[in-house]
Design a protein around this nucleic acid. Structure first.
Lengths: 250, 250
DNA sequence: AAGTGGTCTAGACCACCAC
DNA sequence: TGGTGGTCTAGACCACTTC
């Protein structure tokens, strides 16, 4: 009880984390560089193992570093894909047999897997939005350079698409929007709701997300000229892989 | 001591976190409810303190729970504000109150503080975008119901706005866009780039963000009819407080 | 084989909060 | 005053990566 050193001194692990963060943000430590490991921090700062771990956990949870088992902790890299909100859905895109996804990748090869198509009862929110009890849903996962970057789940009113290629694994040239057009329900207007949050463990697993990586959730509704909603597409994006771009006039 | 480990079995703290998460997602534990504390988990599962803490840390870093010192760990709430990006002429036709994520904050007043206005050298990226060496920047913080929800930093080409009210704390009626209009540089077109990431400690502090809360970063560029960029506005949004909405046509 | 991160135990003292 | 979360120590065993 001789003195109270400084009223609000940050704890040790915070100060260790702060100095490491500064070394990253200043550029001294670059993408992919190895950070001092637990043992190095224990020696350098004279702290216990758990304290060194706690300091590294701060950076990992901030998304600045990624741990590699048996190897070390490394500075994380950020190489985003630019996703255009408005341009990508221009009518000529899908009316000419091109998939929407092509607009994003600029020639980089992408793959689709984990495809599931099924008819299910609509959730309360989806039922309200699409004004239907049952929906056909199409789930899939997109990867670029073998890295998963996006999960998507499209919902269609069941009565509308029953018996069409939209309920098949392969939807044919132009994809589901071309099929909707053939039914007389071409989407002409879109609303996108965008959120960000931490992923569920399932999402983190499917997207192979390291700790400290949020996901961007885009919920897009497609409308016909009559204002009828015909598709609800929920997309889960790895936030470290994406930049969204929207253009509009005053 | 412990049972011989079974291959692929998740660690104890994960299983504890999983059961707690299920109780939250199933609705058994609701917004604001108190979770079992460290002592309760130690007793219930027969684990050490650090293990119980680790389980709670998982939920906290997922943004599902918030710790309150001396009180307990509580289920977190999500009450978003709806932020409309593009407000098109057809908006009335399309947006008929149907939205996946409800936003009940319409009309609530916001306050502005932490205002800083200064002339500084432009960073490399800003200099390239605004084609200028110096910029006037306007920083401020927005709060709703006394809760900080957004930080914003506007950048203007210094030569363009030097000597105008844009360089003053109070920009006058209509704000900076009205002033730009008087200069003959009315913004008519906007581009928004949207990202998500974990906040820096400074951002977390200014926005009073609990752990596990990402921020949404919006970088908006305003262009004149001539295509000249006249403002660059970087906004940092509390992701737990916002839903972005964009409307556009095919 | 040596080093690394991953998990876990069993203690300790502290600041803060509610009763 | 007792319970809560916040920080920290000093060990331990494990799985994995690298050499």
């Amino acid at each position: 009880m001789t003195e109270s050193p400084v009223p609000h001194e940050p704890p040790i692990y915070r100060r260790i984390a702060d100095t490491l963060r500064n070394r990253i943000l200043s550029g001294e430590l670059r993408d992919g560089d190895r950070l001092p490991g637990e043992n190095a921090l224990m020696a350098e700062y004279g702290v216990a193992r758990a304290t060194a771990r706690q300091a590294l956990a701060v950076l990992i949870n901030e998304g600045l570093a990624v741990p590699r088992r048996g190897s070390g902790v490394y500075v994380r890299l950020f190489r985003p894909i630019r996703r255009h909100g408005s341009r990508r859905l221009s009518r000529q895109q899908w009316s000419q047999g091109r998939a929407i996804w092509d607009a994003d990748t600029r020639g980089r090869p992408y793959t689709v897997d984990e495809i599931h198509v099924e008819r299910v009862p609509a959730s309360e929110a989806v039922a309200r939005l699409l004004d239907t009890d049952d929906v056909w849903i199409r789930r899939r996962r997109y990867s670029i350079d073998k890295r998963p970057v996006q999960l998507a789940t499209s919902h269609f009113p069941a009565d509308l698409v029953e018996g069409t290629a939209i309920t098949a694994i392969d939807t044919g040239p132009g994809g589901v929007y071309a099929r909707l057009g053939e039914l007389g329900y071409s989407p002409v207007h879109f609303t996108e709701e965008v959120r960000a949050r931490m992923p569920t463990p399932q999402e983190a697993n499917l997207l192979k997300l390291p700790a400290g990586t949020p996901v961007i959730v885009i919920c897009r509704t497609a409308y016909t000229t009559g204002g009828m909603p015909v598709e609800l597409n929920e997309m889960i994006l790895d936030s470290a892989s994406y930049v969204l771009q929207y253009d509009f006039d005053a």
